Simulated assay, not measured.
Amino acid sequence: MSGGRPVVSVVILTLNAGPGFEELLRRVSGQRGDFELELVVVDSGSTDGTVELARRYGAAVHRISKRDFNHGATRNLGISLSRGEYVALLVQDALPLGEGWLAAMVENLERDERVAGVYGRQLPRPEASAFTRALLGSLATASPERREQFAGGPERYRALSPQRRRRLAAFDNVSSCIRRSVWERFPFDRTDFGEDIRWGKRVVEAGYRLVYEPRSAVYHSHERGALYDLRRYYVNQRVLMELFGIRPVSSLARLLVAVARSTLYLYRLLRSNEEAAAAGALLLLAAAARYAATSQLGNYLGAKSVSLARVSPRLYGRLHGFLSRGI
């Protein structure tokens, strides 16, 4: 595109988005910036009025069946239905903070044509539990410091350590904005999990930059149970193993060490949080141990899944079907 103000599209994937969705739409519609704003919603079979609400806020709505939803392919569909030079991707339960959420990401793309994508800060919702606040506050996507991720070219990227390659490839489609021309060259993979870090790896390896921009922030947090944590760490470990060969919990001995270390780290993290610390040492230790055990067990099962598939395909099929469900 050339001449005039750029078009910036916001693509949201929905399925029964719930009562908070109107506030999301209101905040997206109220974004300020030197661009024309377009809103595209791809809905996977909502029955709670999500579609009608989106249309009232001027969204172009495209409907698909629930069985056709795919994290990568459905985002590609939404982008293909949009016309923006830059396309923001937002999940249905993330709530932008302020009227500059979108402009802060667009500014990075406008400033440097080698920036392929920008992703923003995630903060726990005001009603989040003390444990959730402490845990999310320690993540890289909660940092107040801006980061640029650039390897210097394909050869230099491939020469880096697995952990360094992983950090440079970090990207998060909870709240992000990508350059259409780069997406046309590198669309998202058709995948049920990790479409964002897969894309991040491809574009950084190709010589582009990614930017973490904390001025663009959303509220986004959940109160999950142990089963969800187990499943999420399982599928996440499989992605990290596939993309970077990272497998830190590869044996039962390492699992025990990882649980102990993770419990101690989380306990100290909770103790340092004044709100969490008020619950008392025993409750904090129990919460830390529960999360450490389920997350590290998920890592272990993910690391072992490849060898299990070779030894016992039937058992692997059942385990994988159970652990990858609902993520």
Rank of each mutant, 00 (worst) to 15 (best):
A54V: 01
E38Q: 15
E213G: 01
G72M: 11
H220W: 15
E113Y: 08
E113G: 09
G49C: 03
A116P: 03
P19D: 10
I246F: 12
G245N: 06
P162H: 09
L266G: 00
R121K: 15
L315Q: 12
A293C: 12
T263K: 05
A287H: 08
P214I: 05
A104E: 06
R318Y: 13
L308R: 07
R63K: 14
R146E: 15
R318D: 12
R232A: 11
E145M: 10
L13D: 04
F21K: 01
E184H: 08
V235N: 04
V203H: 04
E36H: 08
A73I: 02
V203E: 06
S176R: 05
I12P: 00
S129V: 02
P214E: 06
F69W: 15
Y86A: 09
F186T: 02
V218I: 10
A104K: 09
A73F: 15
L252Y: 13
R254K: 13
F193Y: 15
I12S: 00
V259T: 00
L315D: 15
G280D: 06
R238I: 09
A170F: 15
G18N: 01
P162E: 10
V306E: 15
S221K: 01
R224H: 14
G153Y: 13
S175H: 11
V218P: 00
A159W: 14
L160Y: 11
G302A: 02
K304L: 14
N70W: 01
D93E: 06
L15D: 06
G49R: 00
V235F: 01
A276H: 01
L282H: 13
V28S: 00
F131W: 14
L25T: 08
R238A: 07
L24A: 12
A278W: 08
V11Y: 08
L168Y: 02
A260L: 12
E99R: 13
Y157E: 10
P126Q: 06
L97M: 10
G72N: 07
L90F: 03
V174K: 10
R180I: 01
V311A: 15
R164N: 07
E23W: 05
G137T: 03
D229N: 11
Y157C: 05
R202N: 09
V106R: 07
S161F: 09
L123N: 03
E275V: 08
V51K: 09
R158V: 02
G84V: 03
L81D: 04
R254H: 12
Q122F: 05
R268E: 15
S324L: 10
L123G: 02
L210R: 05
L95Y: 10
